[in-house]
Design a protein around this nucleic acid. Sequence first.
RNA 1: GCGGGUGUAGCUUAGUGGUAAAGCUCCAGCCUUCCAAGCUGGUAAUGUGGGUUCGAUUCCCAUCACCCGCUCCA
Length: 492
Amino acid sequence: MAKLTKLEDIVSLCKRRGFIFQSSEIYGGLASCYDYGPLGVELKNNVKKAWWKSVVQMRDDVVGIDCSILMHPLVWKASGHADQFADLIAECKKCNTRTRIDHLKDKPNESAEEHTEHIALAAAAAGAQDLSRKVCPACGAVGNFTQPMPFNLMFETNMGANVDDSMTLFLRPETAQGIFANFRNVLDSTRVKIPFGIAQIGKSFRNEITTKAFIFRTREFEQAELEFFCAPGTDDQWFVHWKQQRFNWYLNLGIKKENLRFREHEKDELAHYAKGCVDVEYKFPFGSGDWQELEGIANRTDYDLRQHQRGMRTLNSWYENKGDLSKIKLKEEAEDYLKGPLSYFDDEKKSRFIPYVIEPSAGMDRSTLAFLVDAYDEEEVRGETRNLLRFSPAIAPIKAGVFPLVNRDGMPEIARKIFDDLKKYFNCFYDDKGAIGRRYRRQDEAGTPFCITVDGQTTQDNTVTIRQRDSMEQIRLATDQLKTYVREKLDL
RNA sequence: GCGGGUGUAGCUUAGUGGUAAAGCUCCAGCCUUCCAAGCUGGUAAUGUGGGUUCGAUUCCCAUCACCCGCUCCA
């Protein structure tokens, strides 16, 4: 990969080719928000389709769902997000460095806890007042901190146009909870049997304290998540299974092997409910060659379904407190929670249990960008630089360009007819402007894998040339075989 | 949120306290039978808001956005 060595190069490429624009750019932009342009939306849609095909369509044991972004507030009480999806940050008055207070330590030489889970806001605020002996990890100053500043990472909004009558809701910070909330519905309506999964692609929102780095961490982003429900005791094998499945998905779609790796989470880095977690990381080509997380695969145990059983028991308390989440406490788990409303009855073994959950959760925006930069290439052809995107045909925004070699002798008419026929089956682009070489190069830049050209011979024997993006080689093909030829290349 | 940097046409760059320049791209036309050819013409820019000034793209202030580093990162 040549020349694409800085984030700026990638941003520039994305804008130049119509993949990704700054949101609200004509108004000076809006931090952390980005729009997908004409090629970008095709690319991203194809990435999502490829995920859905691999995770849902090709499997007998996974079904799909599409949940609303707004959900009952108790969902977030039960999931823990309302109380715990938050950080307390204090700023060193001496050097202005901000540090999460749970990362602060008393003595300078203690090893810092690199990753700890988010903390319960209320409890931490009460217990965290005394920072007088804490040491700033940046400059070493002792006890020189501002008051801790709380950050809740969930977006709030209001439902109901009438102000007096409106209810505060949260924009979902993950799509997963919609799946857990529908576990019973899916079970009752689709004859699925454990082990099985429910998959969803959709937008999520997090008020990240810092964003930065283009679309790697944005406050509005799209996730593709699978919650795979299995019997306790089988969770480890399913964890391994999905780990492998998901890693291969990226490779099959063309990501170079040397740019992809797993990163296992350390025990102390795991969320409190997780038994295991591994990230799929991609080595982006800029800066120091940072490995960035594309996807996390976690063993969430039976935590989520058990929590929602507690949430369901809390409903009355919620009504009694007029929906004020801060005034209610999640009800304790029932003694016989294993037989609760979100449990599963195994007919063969005549046993009832709360399923364990394996969760592969992929960032669609990050993945799309990884596919884009991984496909980027420059090469020398006859002293000229050829820029191209070597997309897998499955995710290429345009599958075929259709050209008349020259604009006469009936060639445009034939090319038009071919274009009109093929566009019913896949994205095509018709171009009759300028020299043929220029048209090929334009498609190279968009990552179009095939170009079909009508020439003088076509009028005699109904064959055309079809040119390969990567090798620039051409073969002749009968026009009635074009559809089959291209479609075969689009399947994985 | 801190420190540093950047912001001129779609892209890459030039330049100046006094009419903002070029290459590529793009568009129109001519010409073209397979890889960014050539010719002619054309569209198009100083992020936003103030201030200083006769006059600001240039100097100053603010603001927005992006990049680098710190910080942070279910």
